[in-house]
């Protein structure tokens, strides 16, 4: 077991182990992420292997022996052929044509425009606030009424995709890519200001900027179907039902 103390051997073991663990993760992770994680581990091992002079020598020793020792001639030839050969094989595989679409990057939360026109009227998204929000402090009953209106809007228009539990698991959900947003998740509406939601609901997928692939989003555009009050009400409902407060900066 003495050879386990060698820095080069340890490096190889850690890299292999890291690779196996990452490959075992379910669901499988995309290649881009796998490559990044493996590079991080490799850099870490390079740092470790040279962190002390003693370790660095132990790292180079087997390599040096392989390169100079007369008795290892055969092995040397084998390794020195295997490296370019391996590179050639990998290159060949990379060149095999494939009919799968290239990897894409979709921005989930693009920057909203500064202002939009909704049914002919300009709305400044920078200043727009939910007109019903203040009722929460002043008139509990009216507030509950607006939430109720939002619930109706939701279960007439949205649950098919966004789900009964607002978790993005509606009956249609699996058919879409990107999948309908999961409002329970802290990564969606909990991060956003209410005016942002107004924009997303009013303008839907088609209103997204290019980096968010507007052509692929199934989110309908609700302008012309829902009016301003209905949209603000459904926003209220989304936040009340999930228990997330909207993002504010005060």
């Amino acid at each position: 077991m003495q050879f386990l103390k060698n820095a080069l051997v340890q490096t190889v073991i850690v890299l292999l182990l890291g690779f196996v663990v990452l490959e075992l993760v379910q669901p499988p992770i995309p290649l881009s992420l796998l490559m990044f994680y493996m590079s991080a581990i490799a850099v870490g091992m390079a740092v470790y292997s040279t962190s002390t002079t003693e370790r660095m020598e132990s790292f180079w020793a087997p390599i040096r022996t392989l390169l100079v020792s007369p008795s290892l001639k055969l092995l040397r030839i084998a390794v020195l052929t295997a490296i370019p050969a391996g590179a050639a094989v990998l290159t060949a595989f990379a060149l095999i044509p494939s009919n799968s679409a290239p990897a894409t990057l979709r921005v989930i939360h693009p920057a909203p425009p500064g202002s939009i026109t909704f049914e002919g009227k300009p709305i400044n998204l920078r200043e727009a606030v939910n007109p019903f929000r203040e009722l929460k402090g002043t008139d509990q009953q009216a507030f509950a009424g607006k939430v109720e209106l939002g619930r109706e809007v939701y279960f007439k228009n949205c649950f098919q995709c966004h789900g009964d539990h607002l978790d993005g698991e509606g009956p249609f959900a699996k058919a879409f890519n990107p999948r309908p947003a999961n409002f329970q998740d802290v990564g969606t509406i909990a991060q956003l200001q209410e005016s942002y939601l107004f924009w997303r609901i009013a303008k839907g997928g088609p209103g997204l900027p290019a980096e968010s692939t507007p052509g692929r989003s199934a989110m309908p555009r609700w302008e012309g179907i829902l009016n301003t009050d209905q949209i603000w009400a459904v926003i209220l409902f989304l936040y009340e039902k999930t228990g997330h407060p909207p993002r504010t900066w005060e």
Binding site: S32, R106, N177
Partner: peptide, 18 residues
Amino acid sequence: HSLIATPEEVSAMGGAHH
């Protein structure tokens, strides 16, 4: 936050989110 993935990888993950 948003991963770079091929369509096959996306469907294997069940969404762009892992």
